[in-house]
Write a protein that binds this DNA or RNA. Sequence first.
DNA 1: TATGAATGAGTATTCATTCAT
DNA 2: GATGAATGAATACTCATTCAT
Lengths: 209, 209, 209, 209
Amino acid sequence: MTRRLTTRGQQRRDQLIGFATARFAENGFHPTSVTEIVNGLGVGKGVFYWYFDSKEELFIEILRGAQQDLRRFQEKAIANEPDPLARIEFGIRASITWLAGHPDFFTLLQFAAIDEKFSKLIRLGEEIAVNDVARHIREGIDQGRIDEGDPVVLGHAILGVTNQLTRVLLFEKKYEPGSVADTVIRFALGGLRGFSGVIAAGALSVTST
Amino acid sequence: MTRRLTTRGQQRRDQLIGFATARFAENGFHPTSVTEIVNGLGVGKGVFYWYFDSKEELFIEILRGAQQDLRRFQEKAIANEPDPLARIEFGIRASITWLAGHPDFFTLLQFAAIDEKFSKLIRLGEEIAVNDVARHIREGIDQGRIDEGDPVVLGHAILGVTNQLTRVLLFEKKYEPGSVADTVIRFALGGLRGFSGVIAAGALSVTST
Amino acid sequence: MTRRLTTRGQQRRDQLIGFATARFAENGFHPTSVTEIVNGLGVGKGVFYWYFDSKEELFIEILRGAQQDLRRFQEKAIANEPDPLARIEFGIRASITWLAGHPDFFTLLQFAAIDEKFSKLIRLGEEIAVNDVARHIREGIDQGRIDEGDPVVLGHAILGVTNQLTRVLLFEKKYEPGSVADTVIRFALGGLRGFSGVIAAGALSVTST
Amino acid sequence: MTRRLTTRGQQRRDQLIGFATARFAENGFHPTSVTEIVNGLGVGKGVFYWYFDSKEELFIEILRGAQQDLRRFQEKAIANEPDPLARIEFGIRASITWLAGHPDFFTLLQFAAIDEKFSKLIRLGEEIAVNDVARHIREGIDQGRIDEGDPVVLGHAILGVTNQLTRVLLFEKKYEPGSVADTVIRFALGGLRGFSGVIAAGALSVTST
DNA sequence: TATGAATGAGTATTCATTCAT
DNA sequence: GATGAATGAATACTCATTCAT
């Protein structure tokens, strides 16, 4: 929905987005009803549908905004850094810092990644993020500082570590964002360098079903 | 619900679990109604509630079964292996192999991890899995083959990589389970060894909000 | 929706159809809410949707039933009558008799004829009815007892007279069905015979935009 | 609502009426929302309620205008014609000509005739039209050119034929208005003259329920 | 005159669960 | 063990109308 909004209208819209984000994060998207949102704000039901076509549209709006904001934050953190490995580090650090400041969005993104209705949007954002990292990785490989390997796959690996440790360390164990980032970066860069030694004879030849 | 079941009763119950698993995986837990399940099986509604107290209970049953099965599969893969790093490798490989054979459960577990009602159960299973790996990691550290670090945290890191790459490589890009496992293992073992070099002057001292 | 129904179920269904027909006729289709129907019957809302997929489906069911019933009644009235003009007469008479006994349906059919969602169904029934009459008309023409003319068009003309006079004389002025039928038949048969005299010089050459 | 309007105001009002007429005709009265009307015209909601008290009032306005216009058109067509049968013919012809030029109104009138809220108005207009014809019919009877019969009832019969054949021939089969009028007039005048022969023994004595 | 914002009762429909048979 | 029937609270969304600016 695109509508010309007055200042007051713009404020209402932001208010709706803010309140809904909080409720969605705490309760989940499905369990949070439109009624709950408008009642919580003390406005009539029509207000919601004046600003959004549907509950779904509002959620997509929220997601898009979050993705954009995060990406901008990452770009700013990386800007002008010539060293590809440093860019990877700064990117990870920026992500975790941003998530620490927007805990609601973490929950929302996790949910959206799974729900059929929104997963496509999330996959898209993920792809963009992964391609960003992949560029740095490729450069690192070219410089001989990272082992050969598919940069996009490695990007996904980094994303996986970042998400899991952010959830567990940052949000569950309440570690400092800086220290979480240190841990993630250490593991990620180690992972990028890979492992080449022999573990146990025959191990790598184990076949799967 | 605990009920003494005849052989026929046990079969009905398994049939319900099987069909529900497939529907939940394809459509999601919330969107799949009890009506859909009993209709799909051509039985009356009472049947469902004869075997399960609620839709939720059925889902928990499914999750518990999956977690148990996966764990047993991992244990069997690791049994009698003395080398801790090899145990880690075999564990990862077993997980991916199992998931390749039970794609429905992957979706279900992802969903359950987020939904308030089931996340506790998932966290518990995750904790068990992570503690398993953590034991091997600790041994590896003691043997000087893995860098110092919190084994539980490292376990979570491995879980993160495994999940993400399984989703992307195994289920989206349809790679062979064996090659997915190779990639994960390589990255994970590299990550465990960590990274100690200097990236760019001052990089690690960047502080986050 | 097709569902195996018990005797009790069949009764409920009929009860719903009967009550809804009355409400629709009195209040209109749109203004009559599902809530009103189930409350009027003192049952829960689910009952409605156990028997019908939607309010629309119920209405279509009602219409179809009415059309069928009316058609059977007409056929019975005409059966074995060799004279085509008599068959036309009996058909008209049967229609009016039936409508007198089912006043609710008259209203419903009128509404349905206009509403986009149902008009197609009504047009179909109308077409069938018109074709029935057209057959008799054609025979009448062949026997030289009816003037040349498109039998289908003449059938529509008869339908128009019947509907209008039924509404006005039968339902508004509360005339006896028999006398309404007499009037309709007289006009219809006269109309079939047509008019061939000159009215006023040039009259038939008046052109329209 | 009566409001003194500036020239510009009058134009706005006409614009609203015109646009609404088209929307109502295409989509129906209920399904066409005030929002749709004002959006379609690119004006705010207040505009609508500045010119009309309600959606209903606007519709009534439309209907009244149409009825008036049609009646004037008929009167003009009949003016100074001394022959009553010719006046009937000219009246029918004028109606069909007018409807051919205002197809939207035909739909609107059909709808309004059924809806509880508007049917009274339509019945009134119908009565006027019927009384007009009835006057000519009575004269025709007095001149011995039309069979005895209630002129008002015969007027309704003519209206019925006209409406049905207009819908089917003019709007559905897209015949020329002139030829539709010819058909209607032929049938109507034939109907007025009635039918006096015996059809089948006993036919007219069939009694209805 | 006109606008955008707000109201809130009302709509059809869903669905986990219960129950009489 | 099993069935079909019933419950009723809950949901997203609509829309004629009002109002402050």
